[in-house]
Simulated assay, not measured.
Amino acid sequence: MATVETAILVLDSGEPEQLAAFYAGLLGEEVAYNPQADRFETAGASGTRLGFRRDAGFAPPSWPRPDDAHQTHLELLVAEGDMDAAERAAITGGARPVDTQRGGTHEVRLYSDPAGHTFALRTH
């Protein structure tokens, strides 16, 4: 029997309120402050939960990394016909395009969020 109930991905940021609002806008979720964990969190009907913690010394990750090193990134799944609308919403919210990969069985578009974390919009 598992003792862990759920998982939450927590991203550090110099401005966690703004980063939480960015992801809440993309996911159609609400933002709340969690005083027990001292962070902002998003939650919604999809079941996705993200946390955003303040880090006064935060330095954004770089992309691409030297030597093709991999970083943790968030994948946001998008229905086949909705990729362009999802991209517009991301960029309007403050995302910056990093790379696009078209081909294969899925389309993937990479961005950095307003704090510099890499995330992907990916068809499923």
Rank of each mutant, 00 (worst) to 15 (best):
A37P: 00
A56G: 06
S112Y: 01
L76D: 05
G104L: 08
Q36N: 14
D113N: 04
G94P: 01
G47K: 02
G28P: 11
A85T: 10
Y23M: 02
V98R: 10
G25I: 07
E29P: 04
A45G: 09
H70D: 13
F22A: 02
L19F: 00
H106E: 14
T6E: 10
A7Y: 05
G25Q: 14
A115H: 04
E80Q: 15
H70N: 08
A85W: 11
V98Y: 06
P35K: 02
V4L: 15
D67G: 11
A56I: 12
A43W: 07
R96I: 04
A86T: 12
V31E: 03
A2C: 05
P35I: 10
G116Y: 08
W63N: 06
D113M: 05
R102N: 07
L26D: 02
D55E: 14
P35G: 07
A56Y: 03
L26F: 07
M83I: 15
L27P: 13
D82N: 15
G25K: 10
V78Q: 01
E41N: 03
T42D: 01
P61Y: 14
Y33A: 06
R122W: 05
T3D: 11
D67C: 08
E41R: 00
A2N: 15
R102M: 15
G44T: 06
D84R: 13
T105C: 10
G47T: 01
G104A: 06
T6Y: 13
